[in-house]
Design a protein around this nucleic acid. Structure first.
Length: 909
RNA sequence: GGGCGGUUAGCUCAGUGGGAGAGCGCUUCCUUGACACGGAAGAGGUCAGUGGUUCAAUCCCACUACCGCCCA
């Protein structure tokens, strides 16, 4: 290849698309199950079909790609299985919005045509994110791409549903559920978010009534009032007889219409005498409800007395259950007041918000509103739509979670599943410990319709197919007249089956035999509950084995100021733009360098991608240099004989050896941030800055081509998981074995010779060079004269790197300085292993010397003090004391020499 | 209310029971046989605060303050 074909700077656009197409068309991403090799399988968390690539994919999916590429190079039976989630609620919302724009509605269209449309939409837009993944260099096994709504997965969903139902783990029941009035569906507890908002706490007077059944005798003195027919008082005229009441604090006055009790804490002395009495429920004052005692009431909240509305509040629901109270619902699915269960007077049809205003007005008019105070509290929000959740009492389908959760907890507690970082295991544990039954029925149409039918008499038939359902109905209920339940399943139900359904279950495939369970699940912590815990529960239940051995939890991505990235804030970064600007490799490297093992978030800095681009250019140019050497590169990957290697060769090979070991360990420990940093440091600051520079020396010529190509070849293989494109490009340009770096073997440290003495010797050279460069930066000029302790090779290196011309004289190591602007002072400066004779500008030197002397003095003092301390000598480890002594000795010597130089300088003044 | 994480250089972050680190940014110098998307040198920090353990604490423990996340 000609030089003109490898221009600088490196152009990722000329490389990435071309290589990706080659990889894909050559089938390098595809793998067949092979029981002879260790499996390494990652199930891709299926992105929503509505989704677009965002930075979160960078932080979560890049590690997956890195791991699979790494394990493929290790020779494992590695495969990354991709897929897409049908995202029931999100997709349905998208289609509904489209229909609205066209002036129609879901119901007008009808279920069949709506679903056709959703399918069409999914097929049209569902692939978009996969194109982004390709641009990012992600290499899943595209031939195995699955969709949660495809036939195989749908069959798996039905089968698991039926199995759970027959085992008594799925049931239908009327329970308080989370209703999303915007999406018009229930959602599970895990999809509810809590948000702190300013609200008003209303203190409302509930008049006590005393009648024969509920009013104790002590209250007979109020019988005149209590006997009065319960009627709302006309506005502005509070009844002077209402002298007895209980004051209740609430943030939701509109739900008073459905109150069934007032509750106080059983040990709250303020109210013990009232327990068992009745009050009239405002604002209608037409129903009398009891005052009850329940330990869940917090005496310090408000007045210590709370209203109980079981059909519209989770805590109240539990109180209602405990006390066998009625549960009238006062709101319909449109979150408007409804008179279905109980009289709601003129409030019928009002929205939640309007009803609140009207009730508060009425209370005020009735004189029942005691006070209003500002109050900040958390309200339930639908994660998907942002709507305020309305708890409603509805007939829904549930998964009975207790037995499933127990098995999932055992798997964690027995160590069959471990979390990285470990602390997320406790999050998982906590959630499973207090898990409630999982509401799985949704009122959207896009999704897996429940495999449930009802007879005319209302009997339930659950079966995997309509034929089977009919047969069952015929057999059990002697009817063929069935209606299918219109509800669909929670999207997360199908996702929970992902690790085995994508492998072909319920068919007993080779994939299933080899690749279940997988080794590691990689995901963000926000879906530990939604997804991870449920995969474990259902994996254990269906397969009898946990679906993965490890869960690697990646951090969430925030902007550089630590704010959540969102469209509304305008701070969201499109990864495709970064790929466009810097290349996929640079983006991946930039992202990986920011991942920290224990971090829960990343403040993403775009500058890291720019640095990545610069880094790639550095690699590119180093390889251009290797390719441009006048001597030819060796045909194969070979090293010169050990005794021919130069000091620099031995050093870089030793460093390579250590780097291979370290990067391997870091990848094995999922520490991508440090792995990336280690590679970065090795390539840029060791290989390029020192080794490539050293190869420009005469003595390096016989070995440099082979060593350069050997080190680059190994380094590109180390780099490949993180930067797949440039590593492949460079690897192919240099001597290599095989067609692609993707299936090249992972570097073996045993193949890299190690020479610790040479490495130390070279390291000493670098320290002298830094020192001399410092002198040069301060204007010192002259020539180096070497002392005998320094080898020829070291002298040559020092002269080359420091750019001081070297010369031998009297076997002494000197730096002799000349120059028109240099005063005639001559003095020696010690360096470890020798001394440097030095001529410099006195006026510049004196303050610098003084500063250094002061620093050394304090160092020496500190050491002396330490070594005088008998307790230190007695307690500290021997090597620590030894290091301290050596440090003191060296610092004392340097100090003496510098002081001598200083006095010499001052005497010449 | 319960739980968890964080606080180290201007910024983003590493790190370790015994000499404070990186990248970027900044200052100065340099186009030297790949690279200015580069090279060299340098400045810059009472490691949030208080107390404890220890011969020794930025690191371990306790408390406080502030920031953030999760759960209810």
């Amino acid at each position: 290849m000609q030089r003109s074909e490898r221009p600088s700077p490196y152009d990722p656009k000329a490389v990435e698309g071309r290589l990706y197409e080659q990889w894909e068309s050559s089938g390098y991403f595809h793998e067949e199950p092979d029981p002879a090799r260790p499996p390494f399988i990652i199930c891709m968390p299926p992105p929503n079909v509505t989704g677009r690539a965002h930075l979160g994919h960078g932080s979560t999916y890049t590690p997956m790609d890195v791991l699979v590429r790494y394990h493929r190079m290790l020779g494992d039976n590695a495969d990354w299985i991709p897929g897409t989630d049908h995202a029931a609620i999100a997709t349905e919302a998208r289609i509904v919005a489209e229909l609205k724009a066209q002036g129609t509605t879901r119901d007008a269209l009808g279920r069949r045509r709506f679903l056709e449309r959703a399918w069409e939409w999914s097929r049209t837009y569902g692939g978009e994110i996969n194109e982004a993944f390709r641009a990012l260099g992600f290499g899943p096994d595209w031939q195995r791409l699955r969709f949660t709504m495809d036939d195989g997965l749908s069959a798996a969903v039905r089968k698991v549903f039926v199995k759970l139902y027959r085992d008594g783990l799925i049931y239908r029941g009327k329970r308080l559920v989370n209703w999303d009035p915007v999406a018009k569906t229930t959602i599970s507890d895990a999809e509810v978010e809590h948000e702190e908002r300013d609200a008003v706490l209303y203190y409302v007077r509930y008049p006590i009534c005393a009648n024969a059944q509920t009013g104790p005798r002590e209250f007979n003195r109020h019988s005149a009032h209590a006997a009065r027919p319960p009627r709302a008082k006309p506005a502005g005229s509070p009844d002077p007889l209402t002298t007895s009441h209980i004051i209740v604090a609430t943030t939701r006055p509109e739900t008073m219409l459905g109150d069934v009790a007032v509750a106080v804490h059983p040990e709250d002395e303020r109210y013990t005498s009232l327990i068992g009495k009745s009050v009239l429920a405002p604002p209608l004052l037409e129903r009398s409800i009891p005052i009850i005692a329940d330990a869940s009431v917090d005496p310090s909240f408000g007045t210590g007395a709370v209203k109980v509305t079981p059909a519209h509040d989770a805590a109240d629901y539990e109180i209602g259950e405990r006390h066998g109270l009625g549960m009238p619902s006062i709101m319909g699915l449109d979150a408007r007041i409804s008179a279905a269960d109980v009289d709601v007077g003129s409030y019928e049809g009002l929205s939640r918000e309007d009803a609140r205003r009207c009730v508060v007005d009425a209370l005020r008019d009735q004189g029942l509103l005691v006070k209003e105070e500002p109050y900040r509290h958390a309200i339930a929000i639908s994660e998907r739509t942002g709507a305020v959740i309305e708890p409603l009492l509805l007939e829904q389908w549930f998964v009975k979670t207790t037995p499933l959760a127990k098995a999932a907890l055992d798997a964690y507690r027995d160590g069959r599943i471990r979390f990285v970082p470990e602390r997320y295991g406790r999050t998982y544990e906590q959630w499973l410990t207090q898990i409630r039954d999982w509401n799985i029925s949704r009122q959207v149409w896009w999704g897996h319709q429940l495999p449930v039918w009802y007879t005319e008499a209302g009997e339930i038939v659950v079966a995997e197919s309509e034929e089977e359902a009919l047969a069952q109905a015929q057999r059990l209920y002697a009817t063929g007249d069935l209606t299918r339940d219109p509800d669909t399943l929670d999207t997360w139900f199908s996702s929970a089956l992902w690790p085995f359904s994508i492998l072909g279950w319920p068919e007993q495939t080779q994939e299933l035999a080899c690749w279940y369970p997988s080794q590691v699940l990689v995901t963000g912590y926000e879906i530990i509950f939604l997804w991870v815990a449920r995969m474990v529960m259902l994996g254990l239940y269906v397969m009898g084995k946990e679906p993965f051995g490890a869960v690697f939890v990646t951090p969430l991505v925030f902007d550089a100021q630590g704010r959540k990235m969102s469209k509304s804030l305008g701070n969201a970064i499109d990864p495709m733009e970064l790929v466009e600007k810097y290349g996929a490799d640079a983006f991946r490297m930039g992202m990986m360098r920011q991942l920290r093992l224990e971090a829960q978030d990343v403040r993403f800095q775009e500058s890291r991608c720019e640095e990545g681009r610069n880094f790639n250019n550095k690699i590119w140019n180093a390889s251009r240099y290797a390719l441009s050497l006048p001597e030819a590169l060796p045909a194969a990957l070979t090293l010169p004989k050990a005794n021919a290697l130069t000091l620099a060769d031995r050093w870089i090979l030793t460093r390579l050896h250590d780097t291979i070991i370290e990067v391997t360990q870091l990848f094995d420990g999922y520490d991508f941030g440090n792995a990336a940093e280690r590679l970065w440091h090795f390539i840029w600051y060791e290989f390029c800055d020192w080794y490539v520079e050293a190869t420009k020396l005469e003595t390096s010529k016989p070995t440099r081509a082979a060593v350069l190509s050997f080190v680059l070849n190994n380094t590109m293989r180390l780099l490949h998981p993180i930067e797949p494109f440039i590593s492949e490009e460079v690897w192919r340009l240099l001597p290599h074995d095989g067609e692609t770096i993707m299936t090249a073997t992972w570097p073996d440290p045993l193949e890299v010779p190690v020479d610790r003495d040479a490495a130390d010797s070279f390291a000493w050279v670098t320290r002298q060079v830094v020192w001399l460069r410092n002198e040069r930066a301060h204007g010192a000029k002259g020539k180096l004269l070497y002392k005998s302790a320094v080898t020829d090779e070291q002298r040559e290196l020092i002269a080359h790197f420091s750019r001081y011309e070297g010369r031998e004289r009297d076997n002494a190591f000197h730096l002799e300085l000349f120059g028109p602007n240099v005063s005639s002072a001559t003095f020696t400066i010690p360096v470890s292993g020798g001394r440097i004779e030095f001529v410099g500008n006195r006026d510049e030197l004196v303050p610098r010397q003084k500063k250094e002397i002061a620093r050394l003095r304090s160092e020496v003092e500190r050491s002396e003090q330490k070594l005088r301390n008998e307790r230190f000598l007695a307690h500290a480890k021997d090597d620590v004391v030894e290091i301290e002594r050596a440090k003191l000795k060296e610092n004392r010597e340097t100090l003496r020499a510098l002081e001598a130089v200083l006095s010499e300088l001052e005497s010449q003044a």
